[in-house]
């Protein structure tokens, strides 16, 4: 370049400048549904001090945040709420799934608990642990910042490439067997979940 830059001026790409600004002001939406939420609070409190990484502004309105932290198990009744909150957040937005329950259902492999939020919403970062230590969440936030700086674009082009569901198959084959087994047992009464095939066989078995 023929023209020399004056002092105190440097050149960069717009993408890099935007990502740098965004990564240092992640505003979390604390979606704390269970015990992991306590650890999330501890992360924000004075000892661990999330503010050191510019992410201390917990916003309780999804319209004002760009980092969804799912901390705790999500049950069937809660999942539509979680999806709605995710859709309400303005772009650009990211998601951290915190703890074994949010990542995979954890020990709660029961009829009501969703087996990992990544089956139904996109997740950027997983934090293992039950519950994860605040340090682990801090590490996730730092990694999140690195990811934003590395891949971020000013118009959010990088998100458009992620157009396939990212979690495991929402319906494993085992589940089909469970449904079959359950239908073999006669349910009687007014169970609406019973198929006609199950009813026939069930009546034969239990007379």
């Amino acid at each position: 370049m023929a023209v020399g830059l004056p002092e105190n001026v440097f050149m960069t790409k717009l993408d890099a400048a935007a990502s740098w600004a965004r990564s240092n002001s992640l505003w979390p939406m604390p979606f704390a549904t269970a015990c992991c939420g306590i650890e999330l609070m501890a992360t924000a409190a004075s000892r661990h001090d999330l503010a050191r990484f510019g992410a201390e502004v917990m916003r309780f309105s999804p319209r004002q945040c760009d980092l969804l932290i799912v901390a705790g198990r999500v049950v069937m009744k809660m999942l539509p709420v979680l999806q709605r909150i995710w859709l309400q957040m303005p772009e650009p937005k990211w998601c951290i799934s915190m703890g074994a329950c949010a990542c995979s259902g954890g020990v709660f492999d029961t009829y009501a608990v969703v087996q990992g939020v990544d089956r139904f919403i996109p997740v950027d970062m997983y934090v293992p642990g039950c519950p994860p230590r605040p340090e682990q969440l801090l590490a996730a936030v730092i990694d999140m910042q690195a990811k934003v700086r590395r891949t971020g674009t000013v118009m959010g082009k990088e998100f458009m490439a992620r157009d396939t569901p990212m979690g495991p198959e929402p319906f494993e084959s085992e589940e089909r067997y469970r449904i079959q087994d359950a239908n073999l047992v006669q349910l009687g009464g007014f169970s609406a979940a019973m198929t006609s095939a199950g009813m026939k066989r069930g009546a034969g078995n239990h007379g």
Binding site: W86, L87, D109, A112, I121, P122, R162, M166, F171
Partner: peptide, 22 residues
Amino acid sequence: KDYPLKGRGERHNFPVITRAGS
């Protein structure tokens, strides 16, 4: 007692949101 502990797939009965679609 004749309802399976892991349910009959009700917990998986939700629309999947992808990143590009949200």
